[in-house]
Computed example of a mutant assay.
Amino acid sequence: MSEKIIFAGTPDFAAEHLKALIEAKYNIIAVYTQPDRPSGRGHKLTPSPVKSLALEHNIPVFTPVNFKEEADKAQFESLQADLAVVVAYGLILPERILNAPRLGCINVHGSLLPQWRGAAPIQRALLSGQDKTGVTIMQIVKELDAGDMLYKKEIEITTQDTSGTLFERLASCGAQALVEAMPKILAQELVPQKQDSALVTYAQKLSKDESPLNFNHSAKQLSLQVRGLNPWPVATTTFDEVVYKVFLAQELSAEQVALLGKIDDLENGAIVQVSSEGITVKCAEGCLLLQTIQAPGKGRVSAGDFARSKKDLFVRGKCFA
Rank of each mutant, 00 (worst) to 15 (best):
L112N: 07
C287M: 02
G129P: 09
D12E: 15
V61P: 02
K25T: 14
L150E: 09
K153M: 15
E3N: 12
R169E: 02
G104V: 02
Q225G: 03
K68I: 01
R102H: 14
M138Y: 01
R124F: 01
Y26S: 09
K208C: 13
P183R: 08
V281T: 07
V141A: 06
A270N: 01
I263L: 09
A254E: 15
A30H: 03
S2A: 11
V246M: 03
D82Q: 03
K68P: 00
G299R: 14
L288Q: 03
K25A: 15
F62Q: 07
S309G: 15
I279Y: 08
N214F: 04
R102C: 10
Q123A: 15
H17Y: 01
A88F: 04
R117H: 04
K25M: 06
R117N: 04
A249V: 11
T10Q: 03
L103K: 14
D12C: 04
D131H: 14
Q221F: 06
I5F: 05
P38Y: 00
I185F: 04
A258S: 15
G129S: 10
Q188C: 07
E69D: 15
I263V: 14
Q193T: 09
K153F: 09
P296S: 08
Q193G: 00
F62S: 09
T10W: 06
D12I: 05
A146R: 10
P35W: 05
R96D: 15
V242R: 11
L55V: 13
A254V: 13
F7T: 04
I140W: 02
L206H: 03
V87Y: 09
E77Q: 12
L150P: 01
A284N: 08
S172Q: 15
L83V: 10
A177M: 11
G90R: 01
V50G: 05
V86M: 02
L112I: 14
I97C: 07
D265A: 10
A8H: 13
K132F: 13
V86T: 04
N58H: 15
D305C: 00
L186D: 03
V31R: 11
G118N: 09
V179C: 08
R37H: 13
L79D: 07
T158R: 08
G269L: 06
F62C: 04
T201M: 10
R37F: 11
G278N: 07
A81Q: 09
L260C: 14
L259A: 15
L98V: 06
R37N: 12
S207L: 08
D240C: 10
Q139G: 05
L259T: 13
T10F: 08
E56C: 12
T238I: 15
P38G: 08
Q80N: 14
I97T: 05
D72W: 11
N27V: 03
L199G: 03
L206P: 05
G174P: 13
K73N: 12
K68R: 12
Q34E: 13
N107Y: 11
K220I: 03
S48N: 09
N107V: 02
A146W: 00
T158V: 05
K282N: 05
F13P: 06
E16F: 14
E168R: 13
